[in-house]
Design a protein around this nucleic acid. Structure first.
Lengths: 219, 219
DNA sequence: ATATTATTTTAGATATGTCTAAATTTTAGC
DNA sequence: GCTAAAATTTAGACATATCTAAAATAATAT
């Protein structure tokens, strides 16, 4: 079995590969995990020895098939626990990430599959992210970030890229939630900020916020 | 916050104080935790510095009030998670200990109190052990071990002293479960084994097994 | 009361995962 | 294509939690 530190690195590398393509750099990992690049190098060597990543000095890393599957198992656990916390224990979507970070490392295949069944095999977590199945199969969510939408187009908010407490609290404050229908009513060329409209209100969001909002049925 | 290792030591010391009285010895702790006495000494020093135990060289340890409360919080978490596993996820009582050993270290007061509410504030875990409340208050269960029962007396099985998988599996095999009414029909002086009778069957148990079965309403 | 045995502690080592500071390699600018 | 800057790695250190082997202390037995 793998240590918590190892599992966290695999998860981070998985996400970074998704976001930035193959061959994730040492500095990128260090940035995400709030560790120093030298610590990352040490860990990458260990992961390479265990055949979880392909690592070439100064060239960054890539997950192996084993590494990818291991990462997906951790992500599966994280997302199922988040569902449990929100659906069964009535947590808000902005309170669950940190707790799930701990729960995701509990070791028991049986536990996670029983939890899955208890939750009636959810397909998405509270942030709209797909939950991998036991075999690591994951549904690719074909959603569009607001920054890829044209002026005047509409869509339904189905997921967020950033699941941090601060970002989700910002959305709460702005009265934005999954399922909301949005319309892009203006794009400010100066700072790439977006003016958007929901059923109940209008607001201005920065380009950074826009990037983190994912929509479906964009027309 | 305390490390998993520290929490485990506190829990162990708490249980040993209950079972053997104050001033728990280094060797006793080493035996329970499957570590070496030298490791125990190292940890006791650390716990003493943090004011969780009173430790005098060669004299054993005692929990401080802080240590006792910390141990009770861990025990509360362990037992609530066991309830969750059995009641909600349909685990058997012999499958939950190891998983709860992991879950008990998840840090979040809110989580455990929400879990408590979700389970409708259970008073006993699946092995009949009382669950401490948020303030560390715990109901003393006035139960009697079979070894303290007279020939011909009866009682209801309400708890087990040993919650290990092996012991619980033995009870499953022998068709013994919490709630069963038992009668002592013979005591063998040679090896202190007990012949007991339930509604459905009779069996012989060793003195060791008898010690681990706790009954109420003994007459 | 002392010698033997059992228990406990100390000293020094190991593994994991992190760090800082220095050295090395790669990248980018000109 | 060379040089400066940026990125990465190495070397050596530290904290946690464990171990073995040796030393110190306590318990016991005659």
């Amino acid at each position: 079995m793998y240590s918590q530190a190892e599992e966290n690195y695999l998860k981070t590398i998985y996400v970074l590969e998704k976001d930035f393509g193959d061959d994730v750099s040492t500095n990128l990992i260090a940035g995400k995990t709030k560790t120093k690049p030298s610590s990352v190098t040490d860990m990458l060597k260990k992961l390479a020895i265990k055949d979880l990543v392909l690592y070439k000095k100064y060239q960054g890393v890539k997950l192996t098939e084993t590494g990818r599957l291991t990462a997906l198992k951790v992500i599966r656990k994280h997302r199922l626990w988040e569902c449990f916390l929100v659906q069964k224990l009535n947590f808000n979507w902005d309170e669950v990430h940190e707790i799930a970070e701990q729960l995701e490392h509990v070791k028991s295949e049986l536990l996670i599959n029983k939890l899955d069944a208890f939750l009636r095999f959810p397909k998405l977590d509270p942030h709209g992210d797909p939950i991998p199945d036991e075999q690591g199969r994951i549904i690719k969510n074909q959603s569009t970030s607001i920054i890829d939408m044209k002026l005047g187009s509409t869509g339904t908010l189905v997921a967020v890229k950033d699941s941090s407490e601060t970002f989700l609290r910002y959305l709460n404050k702005k009265n934005l939630a999954l399922g909301d229908k949005l319309k892009v009513i203006d794009i400010e060329p100066y700072d790439n900020s977006y003016h958007i409209e929901t059923k109940t209100h209008r607001l201005v969001i920065t380009n950074n916020v826009a990037e983190n909002l994912l929509l479906k049925n964009v027309k």
